[in-house]
Amino acid sequence: MEKSIISVVGKDRVGIIARICSYLADNDVNILDITQTIVGGLFQMMMICDTDKCTKEFHVVAEELHGVGDELGVQIKLQKEEIFEKMQRI
């Protein structure tokens, strides 16, 4: 299973997680873990996901999530997990 990371940064509002989760459910992306915090009104969230069953190509999901972010006024990124493992851990 190849894990991916969805990160969300932006101004807090009602329904951010709900909207993202419904998009992921519609596209067969399984959520493995969610971490979330709010620092000074800034919403930060990270989801660890399994995109194996998703039929869309990775870059298509990334672009569509970016679009969902635009609707919500937050920045959403989809990235393969490896980049964080490589850059942050020895």
């Binding site: 990371i5 990160s7 873990d33 971490t35 915090t37 990270m46 997990e81 980049i83 964080f84 942050q88």
Partner: peptide, 12 residues
């Protein structure tokens, strides 16, 4: 598994 802090720092 990366932490939220690591993800935010990397993307910044």
């Amino acid at each position: 598994m990366p932490s939220l802090h690591e993800v935010v720092e990397t993307n910044e």
